[in-house]
Simulated scan of single mutants.
Amino acid sequence: MTTSDPRLLVSTEWLAAHLGAPDMRVLDASWHMPATGRDAYAEFRERHIPGARFFDIDEISDDQSDLPHMAPPVEKFISRMRALGIGDGHRIVIYDSAGLFSAARVWWLFRLFGKTDVAVLDGGLPKWIADGHPVEDGAPILRDRHFTARRHASLVRDVTQVAASAKLGDAQIVDARSPARFRGEEPEPRPGLRSGHIPGAKNVHYSTLLNEDGTMKEPEELRRIFTEAGVDLTKPVITSCGSGITAAVLSLALEQIGHRRHSLYDGSWTEWGSYPDLAVEQG
């Protein structure tokens, strides 16, 4: 293990040793920014960890929302997990094709719906391949399983709650976007959004929490990065980013260092930056 808590992050060696266990389920949660033009599912069909199922972040979402990939209603999440053959009592390991990027979002979704026996593959598919482990193509044959879930509202925040926290200071808002986007020095990738950040927010670019091979840094280093960014780790934290994907990398890192009082702003900057009556800071 390269990390302190195997319930959160598992190594490629650990997964290879447990891959054939009947209670193990592996999910490919790869997702790409729309501008990349990449098709995550097509790439999954070409190459994935043996037995993995594809978790479609954009489809398994709230289709009543105009915002991208918002957390789905609990009934939809249950339906999709059953169809993927994910059942009660399964251990779940999630990975993505970037290393550690969108997998954390799906880890957070499972946590949101009350599932704690869920881990992220440290370093994802790139490290799995680099370490000499096999891949396969095609798609698995799936069989429905019984899956129950209950939404834990404490793990998610909406725009009204975030606005109140920004005003009252009862929780720290930590933004995972790049420093240039956070400061408002470069335009947002989504059209129509203002540039800048939520007033009072701190900036911890998600990539600073990762090693060059896509694995997460050691807990002591994670703690130092948050602290040097001005985050008081004795207080609650609300994580944010562009659209709720990389905010979950911060959430995973906070969990890894034992900080349990964190929630995720699901609408993130896509929502905040589109409201002209919400204050924006730059610089």
Results as ranks from 00 to 15, higher is better:
His32Trp: 15
Leu100Lys: 03
Gly89Phe: 05
Pro134Ser: 09
Pro187Gln: 07
Gln161Ala: 07
Arg224Trp: 12
Ala83Asp: 10
Gly114Ser: 03
Ile238His: 01
Tyr206Glu: 02
Arg194Tyr: 09
Gly200Ala: 09
Gly258Thr: 06
Gln64His: 10
Leu264His: 07
Leu9Cys: 09
Glu221Cys: 08
Ile94Met: 01
Leu210Ser: 01
Ile198His: 00
Pro140Gln: 06
Glu220Leu: 12
Ser240His: 01
Tyr265Gly: 00
Thr3Cys: 09
Gly230Cys: 04
Ser263Gln: 06
Glu186Asp: 15
Trp107Met: 05
Ser11Val: 10
Gln64Phe: 11
Gly258Trp: 04
Ser30Gln: 05
Ala130Gln: 12
Gly124Asn: 02
Ala201Cys: 14
Arg177Leu: 11
Gly267Cys: 03
Ser79Gln: 15
Gly258Met: 06
Leu112Pro: 00
Phe101His: 05
His133Asp: 08
Ser207Glu: 12
Gln282Asn: 14
Phe44Met: 06
Cys241Tyr: 03
Glu212Phe: 12
Pro187Gly: 07
Ala130Asp: 14
Arg223Asn: 13
Ala171His: 05
Leu125Asn: 04
Gln282Ala: 13
Cys241Ile: 10
Glu136Cys: 06
His152Leu: 13
Glu188Cys: 05
Leu121Gly: 04
Arg111Leu: 15
Ala17Ile: 14
Thr36Asn: 04
Trp31Gly: 02
Ala153Trp: 14
Ile238Asp: 00
Trp269Phe: 12
Glu218Ala: 14
Gly273His: 04
Gly124Leu: 03
Phe77Ala: 09
Leu15Val: 09
Gly242Leu: 04
Arg82Glu: 11
Gly51Thr: 08
Arg157Pro: 02
Gly51Tyr: 09
Ser11Ile: 07
Val237Asn: 00
Thr215His: 01
Ala21Thr: 08
His133Cys: 11
Ala52Asn: 05
Pro6Arg: 10
Asp63Cys: 15
Gln172Glu: 07
Glu136Gly: 02
Gln64Leu: 10
Thr36Tyr: 05
Ala29Trp: 01
Leu125Tyr: 06
Phe226Ala: 02
Ala149His: 06
Trp107Asn: 02
Ser97Gln: 12
Asp62Lys: 00
Ile198Cys: 04
Lys167Leu: 15
Leu155His: 11
Gly89Asn: 06
Asp131Leu: 13
Ala149Asn: 07
Gly99Leu: 01
Val204Tyr: 03
